[in-house]
Design a protein around this nucleic acid. Structure first.
Lengths: 201, 201
DNA sequence: GTCTATACTCGGATAGAC
DNA sequence: GTCTATCCGAGTATAGAC
């Protein structure tokens, strides 16, 4: 109910929270209105309908989950450094938006038509560039022989999975919220080492 | 509409498919009825309501996603062999039920109360056992020093992530359905090697 | 711009005939 | 056991006053 930000911004933040938590199908306009501290009718005044509101939230989520990591992947860095930076950057990014990956993956799964817009030409090329860099390192015998596509998927998966599987991981390891936080912070180091060792760097 | 299996079984299969695809909130009783080739009213005759039907599907999903892998983790095997078997078994298991992990993780995220039942004492102990085995191997200097909990999460994540992130991975790597299948089959080997190398086995 | 009241649709659930 | 018809609550969206 903060009077600071504009109504529109408050709606958007509330909508983000609710969509992230419940997904499109589970989200209720009423709950969004409540969290924004305004009336249901206002939602339709600013954003015509649920779809439009969702569209905005999803577009933002894309940046939150793809933004910084792409810069690192596209940067001109030697492989070992790039790997380390990628892991650190990506985990930091995900800590800032812990619920976004599960949300995004869920919605992409239900709307295959969105996938092309989500992973556009540019994004695809960036990842292909990383794969090529790995292949090059392999050719020069700087790393163990290894299929580059798998390394790319492993890199992303090792960073993202704990956030998508959070409840299960917390239960298995017996971690409370702050225990999980700490675990994630450790991963910046352990995942980097894991990958470096796997590649023989 | 196969006349073979009983109506009850057909309903359950249809319900599984729809719940897996759409999640609880997105699933429609009408669609389940259609796929089962029967009337909506029949759903309520066999399973009292949507919740009860979901409960059954979810319980089965738990076994589909936890079953075989737990046997391997609990088995009395040397670490390198156990890791290899775990990866192979788990990926085979997930190929048989590709949509289940995303479904389960999504629903657990929305119903934190279910988590305890999902990861019960027994499951927790099995994973702790694996962690202990890794810690032992570390103590005996059979592997590189490494936090066991992270290895456990990495093992599971490397197997599960491709299925949860499937649409994104297909788009990034430019794979069609059978290309993805092949990629997954490759992973049984590449992930095993990745982990072995990471641990210095 | 913000509210209240209300229209309308969708979907889960039940009644009751066969 | 299986169907048709129908009820009813929930949830999105709009009308209209202030």
């Amino acid at each position: 109910m903060e009077k600071e930000r504009s109504t529109e911004a408050r709606i958007f933040e509330a909508a983000s929270a609710v969509f992230h938590e419940k997904g499109y199908a589970g989200a209720r306009m009423q709950e969004i209105a409540d969290r924004a501290g305004i009336n249901k009718a206002m939602l339709h005044y600013y954003y015509r309908n649920k779809d439009k509101l969702f569209e905005g939230v999803f577009r933002t989520a894309r940046l939150q989950v793809l933004g910084p990591i792409l810069d690192v992947i596209g940067a001109d860095l030697p492989l070992p450094v790039k790997m380390e930076r990628a892991v650190h950057t990506y985990i930091d990014q995900l800590v800032a938006h812990p619920e976004v990956p599960a949300f995004v993956l869920q919605e992409l799964r239900r709307h295959p038509d969105r996938v092309r817009r989500f992973i556009d030409e540019e994004v695809q090329l960036l990842f292909q560039g990383l794969a090529r860099q790995i292949r090059e390192a392999d050719r020069r015998a700087e790393i163990r022989p290894v299929p580059p596509e798998h390394v790319v998927v492993n890199l992303i998966g090792l960073c993202v999975f704990p956030f998508v599987g959070r409840p299960v991981i917390q239960a298995v390891l017996g971690l409370d919220e702050e225990g999980f936080e700490a675990f994630i912070q450790e991963r910046k180091q352990t995942v980097t080492t894991f990958i470096h060792n796997a590649l023989g760097l």
